[in-house]
């Protein structure tokens, strides 16, 4: 058996393709759901981190630091295998989404914070001097400017979330990677793994390139 037949076996690839597609669909669902939930959580965390009363601010900060430090795989195993001991039993999809969201929310909060803190103080002062309240200042003045700045790091974070969905295969969720390893076992051939890698690349590489382009454009806008 030569290398080509082992890793790029077209016949095996073609046979496993429907399985891979099913896995891809789940991966995208999990990724999208976690990214969106992470954005909402991240914005809420960021507002608490910056503007809540001091005890809440400290707790939020601890949350953010802890969930940026904990390896996602560890968190996922805790959520899926440890929580049942205290009576919380979540499906593989919900477990994976919970873990991904908690971590993505922590990163997103820090991204939003950097975006808000990059806005000059004068913008807050001009809004305050006009009589705008805190919420109006955020919604109409600060966030629209921050969001432009944080689109590249947010996209980066989204790429990470989609890549991390592969960890969900550990909790028996039939995502793209899980389908690929199963197909590999069935065919006794690793070509489906190469197929999965190609599919991940096809989705994520364009996003990576987009981020570089956005970053270049933003830095040019500043100059």
């Amino acid at each position: 058996m030569d290398l080509f037949e082992t890793f790029f076996n077209l016949e095996v690839l073609a046979r496993s393709f429907p399985m891979l597609l099913k896995g891809l669909w789940l991966t995208l669902e999990l990724g999208a759901a976690s990214i969106l939930a992470g954005l909402v959580l991240g914005l809420a965390l960021c507002m608490m981190r910056l503007y809540a009363v001091s005890p809440v601010r400290i707790l939020t900060r601890i949350y953010i630091d802890v969930f940026r430090s904990i390896p996602l795989l560890v968190l996922l195993i805790i959520v899926y295998y440890a929580l049942p001991f205290i009576g919380v039993r979540l499906s593989p999809f919900v477990s994976a989404m919970t873990a991904l969201t908690m971590v993505s929310g922590a990163y997103t909060a820090e991204i939003f914070r950097s975006g808000i803190e990059a806005i000059p103080k004068g913008q807050f002062e001009a809004a305050a001097a006009l009589g705008l309240g805190h919420r109006q200042t955020m919604v109409d003045v600060i966030l629209p400017q921050s969001i432009r700045m944080v689109i590249p790091p947010l996209t980066n974070n989204s790429i990470n979330v989609v890549k991390d969905t592969a960890l969900a295969s550990v909790v028996a969720m039939p995502d793209l990677l899980k389908q690929a390893t199963q197909a590999q076992a069935l065919a006794a051939n690793p070509s489906p793994l190469i197929g999965a890698a190609a599919i991940y690349l096809a989705f994520l590489l364009p996003l990576v390139l987009l981020v570089s382009r956005l970053e270049r454009r933003l830095s040019r806008g500043k100059a």
Binding site: G122, E125, A126, A129, L130, G131, L132, Q136, D140, Q145
Partner: peptide, 27 residues
């Protein structure tokens, strides 16, 4: 009490007209 700043502090993401409209609309 209106205020005019040394560094203008206009809202860069809004047009000139929108800059002026924002506070009357919202407040």
């Amino acid at each position: 009490v209106g205020m005019v700043f040394q560094s203008f502090n206009l809202f860069p993401h809004l047009t000139v007209r929108q800059n002026i409209m924002l506070a009357p609309r919202r407040v």
